[in-house]
């Protein structure tokens, strides 16, 4: 947000989450919300990451462990299905990978610069040592 002068903002350093009227936010998905420019949703922390999760939907069972334990609201679940990772808000902590129960895992961490298509094409096979 532009660095505005003292006479250009709301009194009391007050911030609005949304522009205009917002009703039933608890049942309105992010894509249908009218976020204000003051909502951190419009910002990005992608540059925090040194490693990124890559999602392989071939092995995903939609258990939603990654969704519930993601600290950054970055697992996108729609209609009870895991559909991807919000790469603007993911900080690369790796929790989603740790809690993923499938074998092989449906999420794995790779260096931030890694090519996603290449990593998906050489996804590890089922690990027979663990169940």
């Amino acid at each position: 947000m532009a660095k505005r002068g003292w006479d250009e903002f709301e009194i009391g350093a007050m911030l609005r989450s949304f522009d205009g009227v917002s009703n039933d936010i608890a049942t309105t998905l992010q894509e249908d919300r009218n976020y204000s420019q003051s909502n951190s949703f419009v910002a990005s922390v992608a540059d925090w990451r040194i490693a990124k999760p890559v999602f392989n939907k071939d092995f995903c069972i939609d258990c939603q462990f990654c969704w519930i334990y993601c600290p950054d609201m970055s697992i996108i679940a729609r209609d009870k299905k895991m559909i991807g990772v919000d790469m603007d808000h993911c900080k690369g902590c790796g929790i989603c990978v740790e809690v993923c129960p499938t074998n092989p895992k449906s999420l794995l961490m790779f260096p931030e610069q890694a090519d996603e298509e290449a990593e998906l094409s050489q996804w590890p096979a089922k690990d027979k040592e663990t169940k």
């Binding site: 608890a26 939609d62 950054d72 970055s74 895991m82 603007d88």
Partner: peptide
């Protein structure tokens, strides 16, 4: 958990 995952978070990233 599947049903829970239809929740629309009121806490935001970044």
């Amino acid at each position: 958990l599947k049903e829970f995952s239809t929740s629309a978070d009121r806490f935001e990233g970044a």
